[in-house]
Every structure is written in C-alpha cells, then in structure tokens.
C-alpha cells in the first residue's frame, strides 16, 4: 500500500484528502454517516470574532453541475469555538484546521490570539480572504496584494502553527495574491473558494438567492480550480491545497497533477458526508495500480503542450 502521508510546513498529515470549510460543519456532526478518523484533516466552518446569524433565505440553489450559496458566514463565534469545540477536538484523531474570517486585520488577529491563548490540538489556520457573500468575508483582502501580504505577516507573528491563506478565483491575477501570501510568510495557500455566480428563475423573474450573487461550487468550477492551482504552482514555492468541484479520486489526481499536494472536498460532502473516505480508498487503489508508493511524483506533473 502506498504511503499517503504528506507534509505541509512542519505538519505531517496521514493523507491528502481534507474536507473544505463550510461543507462539513464543525466536524462533530453526523457520526452515523461518516467516520472522520480517516479524513486527512477537517477544515472547520469560518469563524469570526462574534457569532453571525448569516444571510436571509434563500441561501442555496442548484445550478448545472453545481450550486450557488450565500450563507453569509453563519457561525458560532470564536468564544464558543474555544469553549465548546476545542475540548471535543482534543479527543478526536482527525487533525483540525481552523478557518478564520474577518472584516479587518485586527479582527483576524483577535480571533487567532484568543485561540493561541488557550491550549488546543488544532494543527493550523486557514485564513478566508475570499468569501464572496458578505462584506465582512475578507474579500477586500483577497483581491489586494498589499493587504494580503500585510495580513499574512501580522498573523505569522502570532502563530507557529500551519498558516494557510485561502485564495479567491474572483481576481484578475491569482498568482499575485499567492505570491503576497508567500512573501508574508504563509506555509501554504489553498485554492479556490467559490466563484461569484447568479441564478434567476425565468418563471417568477426573481433572483434565486437573497443576496443576488452567491458563490458557485461543485463540479461546475473544477476547470476554474484546476487552472488556478496550476498557475499558482508555477508562481510560488509553498505547497498548494487544491479545492473546487472534486467528487472522485480521478478529480483528486487531476488536482495533484495540476500542482496540489493535498486537496479539500467541499460540496460533494452534502450529497454524501462519507465521500472523502471513499475517495481516499479509491486514491489508494489507483496508486497501487500505478505502482506508485506516494503521490509526490505526481504533484504538478501534468504534461502540457507548451
């Protein structure tokens, strides 16, 4: 059997199949449907300084091979995350990566400082600078190189844990933001967050989402995610965690070939909360069939024409 373990920064994960923020709750739900101990890491729902109730409904609509959401970062807030969830994570086998969102550099820092101030076994932070659905979602950082670098550098001062910047595809040049993250001291970048989209009901002539625009996810965005990962792979030296539209081990392999060293499964969890484990098993079989003992030789190995 292949060795699926991977190293990002100084953190080792038992396998490269993670679950994406916002698509797996806080990692503590649905024990009946999924055994989380086999998942490489759980990235928890974005946490902000204060609890957030989120956007009014409708928040979700299906689109061709995808869906649009505008949840609006509904979350329990950092205080409850610390008091209610960290103790649960303490006894879980699965590594937890905490996703943080904020509307100002100080908000991100305040959240991180509170978590760093207590003892916990979370392995790192993913910084959401790319939520398209609320103005507090950090998008103003995610589209601005200087801000991204400053935020990364500031946060770097407060933690030795893994620091991952989560990039948005809704920018002119994703490689510039990736470089800023690298310059600021990030251990890795993850890409992509959702793609801005809209859905209209021709019968009622109404928008299907309360906030008009939302974030498109699912297989529909896989080609966008692959292109982003590949471009970023050619632009930075730090590892890339691929995200966007993966539903099978084949999708995962494509993301690895594009340059990812690990991946996050998102929307597919809604259909089957146990899908990450199935994908992992299939990936294992693939590596065995190919006589590969790890994914290392596949990372970024796509054969391009030019």
């Amino acid at each position: 059997m292949a060795d699926l373990s991977i190293k990002i920064g100084h953190t080792t994960f038992k396998n490269p199949i993670f679950v994406a923020s916002g698509t797996f709750g806080y990692g503590t739900d649905n024990p009946e449907l999924v055994d989380v101990s086999n998942i490489g890491a759980i990235v928890t729902k974005s946490i902000t300084l204060n609890p957030r109730e989120g956007n009014p409904p409708p928040r979700i609509v299906e689109t061709p091979s995808g869906m649009i959401n505008s949840i609006g970062l509904a979350n329990i807030g950092v205080e409850k995350y610390i008091s209610e969830l960290l103790p649960i994570y303490e006894v879980m086998d699965t590594p937890i990566i905490m996703n943080i969102a904020g509307s100002s550099i100080t908000e991100y820092i305040d959240v991180m400082k509170k978590v760093e101030a207590v003892s916990s076994n979370i392995v790192g932070y993913e910084i959401n600078i790319s939520c398209p659905n609320v103005k507090e979602g950090g998008m103003e950082f995610g589209v601005d190189c200087e801000m991204t670098e400053k935020l990364t550098r500031e946060l770097r001062n407060f933690t030795d844990r893994l620091l991952i910047m989560k990039l948005s595809p809704n920018v002119t040049d994703i490689t510039a933001i990736a470089k800023s993250s690298e310059n600021g001291g990030a251990d890795a970048v993850s890409a992509i967050n959702t793609v801005v989209g809209m859905s209209i009901d021709h019968k009622t002539k109404k928008s299907n989402i309360y906030t008009t625009y939302g974030g498109l996810s699912g297989p529909a965005i896989k080609p966008v995610g692959l292109a982003c990962v590949h471009k970023v792979f050619n632009a930075v030296k730090i590892p890339i965690i691929g995200i966007g539209g993966m539903v099978s081990s084949h999708d995962v392999i494509e993301y690895i070939l594009a340059g990812s060293c690990a991946v996050q499964i998102g929307t597919a969890n809604y259909r089957d909360p146990g899908i990450a484990e199935k994908i992992l098993n299939d990936l294992n079989d693939y590596l065995d069939e190919q006589n590969l003992n790890s994914i290392t030789s596949l990372i970024g190995a796509v054969k391009t024409y030019v």
């Binding site: 797996f24 709750g25 009014p56 928040r59 979700i60 959401n69 509904a74 969890n269």
Partner: peptide, 8 residues
C-alpha cells in the same frame, strides 16, 4: 443534515 446551513 445541518452541514450547509442553507435551509433556514
């Protein structure tokens, strides 16, 4: 199953 927070 409560993961997506969509159905409020």
């Amino acid at each position: 199953v409560g993961l997506c927070q969509g159905c409020v």
